[in-house]
Nucleic acid binder design. Structure first.
Length: 669
RNA sequence: GAGCCCGUAGCUCAGUCGGUAGAGCAGCGGCCUUUUAAGCCGUGUGUCGAGGGUUCGAUUCCCUCCGGGCUCACCA
């Protein structure tokens, strides 16, 4: 074990680029060495010990240099050399596009960007499957009768819903999706299937596929187990009589024309007209079924990278069938696959049948583009992505994004792929900027009397740059959108018209605090700073710790644990209303005394500590059934007054002062 | 019926080409006393779902099982 080739290798190579591969081969050789040596050597325990130390060193070296790979780097690593890459994705515009479709778009875009950044020539194509038949009435559109008569016709031949300025149905729906592309910084090159078919670009492939229809039938049977009759052909002609292609069945091909029947009962969702005809399959007179259309795209462009959702990626599913057809008919290998899981939006009560809430358009209106990209990119494609629209999830999402942002710019330990997640989330590359915490933005937005920008600048400690202002405005939009559409009632800071039921859970000390505060409010100056001070004063005079004190205010007014800065909030409200609300909370003096009392020893300890600062001490004693309490009101030299409540049974004011060696006279109340 | 993914700290999840694990939040301890527009510092011993196999060594690879989620079996 002459070892350690790896020792000087790691020392020397760690700092250089591309050492990963080298290190892994060293590692492999080393492991082999370890295996052989431990087998042959009697001092196994010692050897193993040495090996473990060395392996750990190797590991550390690897971690420090940062070889943790995000999924997109792994995919980019599969692409060897600098061969030009063609990335493809597509969508059928048969209705408003669901958020789920964004996952594939962002995934492909990320791979596209990574490849380009590594100097690989790449294109990102995005196809509009507008030659697909209309097989379902779009959700959300009341114009059922408008679409019903076109069921089975190619989407690009269906007129747009009434009122739309688009040329056809496909354009109407895809436009909304492409708008989102632009906002998310996705620079894909769009193409439309109608153009490919009509221009004859697919003619050669269509001919090849129809000539090998027997192969297609066999693949369907072997791969997906679905039987096709001897006369079945993978093509759908557009019926010359009724214009549908979802209902036609091709039964023969002679190399020039196909024979077809437009069958009334071929599919459930549309009714063919019964026409029989013979027509050329070229120049847009029909289309390939979707699985073969995939083959046609892969072969024609040719596509080298194309991911697909999990619904296609099951064994024997669409992807398998298409891959097998590509191999058998054209002898080509299918593109690099990126199987990805679903992207769902749950939680909030939304009606997907009405097409509300879970649309790509809505999500892009809500989340800032970089946050939406981040949400998708940070999750491995094989993990389902289920977004909840509650406060906790959304605030955490923004915070995670802000953390990634911060690490990318300021954390020297951040490794390359961590920074890359952030960089790929950006719509376009930007310098560092101040991003306000989203939870705070939500709060601020609900305080209409506040100057939001001024407050944020105060928090930042400097004026906002134009870019920062833009990001802030976008977050304000997100906060308002969330409050309007998704926030649950209890997540909103709505001033409650009556005392909430949960006020019953307030502790005696909290109730006492509200009483002390309420008693101070009639004389208080009604401004945010004065009120904030009054709250702290009341907390000391109760006495109560600050967190429960503030919680009691939020609980009684908003039924929340936390809220806006209390002084500003109260200043916004009516004085009499606030006093009345605080006094509405039931209060029991005996319990209050018990809850806020301290032992004489604790009081002594406190007094001794503050001894040098004491200005005045007042004492008042109160009798109760089980003894009584002495309330010491101590004012320190900073002007702050503290209340300490001690059991009267066990305490004599004079004795306590003597013990603490304090000679300030006590004023008795 | 066929197949895929997941099961790791109270919660949400990272990680692992095999060298027995780590972030955020929560929690706990301390500090502060103009932190409530979520202050500051410290703090992570968890049968890495269960059992078996390969190995010097498994959370990581293989097999079986349990639990959870999903997909395809018509079309896209």
């Amino acid at each position: 074990m002459e070892s350690l080739t790896f020792r000087h290798l790691t020392g020397r190579v760690c700092s250089t680029q591309g050492w990963d591969h080298l290190l892994s081969s060293v590692r492999g050789a080393y492991q082999q060495e370890a295996r052989d040596a431990t087998r042959n050597d009697p001092n196994r325990a010692f050897l193993i010990y040495i090996y473990n130390i060395n392996m750990a060193a190797l590991e550390n070296c690897r971690k420090e240099t940062g070889s943790v790979h995000m999924w997109f780097s792994d995919i980019a690593a599969k692409i060897r050399g600098a061969e030009p890459q063609i990335i493809n994705d597509s969508k059928t515009p048969s209705g408003r596009v669901h958020v789920g479709a964004l996952r594939g778009v962002i995934i492909h875009d990320a791979v596209f960007r990574v490849l380009k950044s590594r100097g690989v020539p790449a294109r990102f194509l995005f196809g509009v499957d507008d030659y697909d038949p209309l097989d379902e009435i779009p959700a959300g559109d009341a114009e059922r009768e408008h679409f019903e008569k076109y069921l089975g016709a190619p989407l690009c031949n269906v007129p747009p819903p009434p009122g739309s300025a688009a040329s056809d149905m496909a354009e109407h729906y895809i436009r909304e999706f492409f708008d989102v592309f632009a906002e998310l910084g996705v620079q894909a090159e769009p193409y439309r299937m109608r153009d490919l078919y009509r221009s004859g670009k697919f003619d050669e492939v269509i001919d090849a596929i129809l000539r090998r229809a027997d192969v297609v039938r066999r693949v369907y049977l072997e791969v997906s187990g679905s039987k096709r009759s001897e006369t079945w052909y993978p093509f759908q002609a557009i019926c010359e009589k009724c214009g549908r292609l979802g209902t036609t069945e091709v039964t023969a091909y002679d190399g020039k024309e196909v024979e077809y029947v437009c069958r009334p009962d071929l599919v459930q969702w549309a009714r063919g007209c019964g026409h029989r005809g013979k027509v050329s399959p070229f120049d847009g007179r029909g289309k390939l079924p979707w699985k073969l259309e995939w083959v046609a795209k892969w072969r024609t462009f040719p596509v080298t990278i194309e991911g697909a959702g999990k619904d296609h990626n099951t064994r024997g599913g669409a992807r398998d069938v298409s891959s097998a057809c590509l191999r058998e008919i054209f002898g080509l290998s299918p593109p690099v696959n990126i199987p990805y899981e679903f992207f769902l939006v749950g939680g909030a009560k939304m009606s997907s049948s009405r097409g509300i809430g879970a649309m790509a358009r809505e999500m892009a209106d809500f989340l800032p583009p970089e946050v939406l990209r981040f949400l998708i990119l940070r999750t491995q494609p094989n993990r389902p992505l289920n977004v909840t629209l509650d406060e906790e999830f959304i605030v955490k999402l923004f915070n995670d994004f802000d953390r990634a942002h911060h690490r990318a710019f300021h954390d020297p330990k951040a490794i390359e792929d961590e920074k890359l997640v952030y960089r790929l989330s950006e719509v376009k590359s930007e310098n560092d900027y101040y991003a306000e915490n989203f939870h705070i933005v939500i709060m601020l937005v609900q305080m209409p009397h506040m100057d939001l920008v001024a407050e944020v600048e105060k928090r930042k400690g400097a004026p906002l740059s134009p870019a920062e202002r833009r990001h802030l405005d976008r977050r304000v939009q997100a906060a308002r959108y969330w409050l309007d559409r998704y926030a649950a009632e209890e997540e909103k800071m709505r001033l409650l018209s009556t005392l909430p039921a949960r006020a019953a859970s307030l502790t005696p000390a909290q109730r006492g605090f509200l009483r002390v505060l309420a008693d101070a409010l009639p004389k208080a100056e009604w401004s945010d700073t004065a009120l904030q001070k009054a709250i702290f004063d009341a907390a000391r005079l109760t006495p109560i710790d600050q967190p429960p004190a503030f919680q009691s205010i939020y609980r009684t007014l908003l039924d929340r644990e936390s809220g806006p800065k209390a002084g500003s909030f109260l200043a916004f409200l009516d004085r009499e209303f606030v006093i009345a609300r605080f006094k509405e909370v039931p209060f029991d003096q005996i319990e209050f005394w018990r809850d806020t009392g301290v032992s004489p020893e604790a009081f002594e300890g406190w007094l001794s500590k503050e001894k040098s600062k004491i200005q005045t001490i007042r004492a008042a004693s109160h009798q109760t059934q089980d003894g009584g309490v002495i309330e010491f009101t101590v004012t320190l030299d900073d002007g702050k007054t503290y209340m300490k409540r001690v059991s009267a049974e066990k305490a004599d004011p004079r004795v306590i002062l003597q013990q603490c060696n304090i000679d300030i006279p006590i004023e008795y109340a």
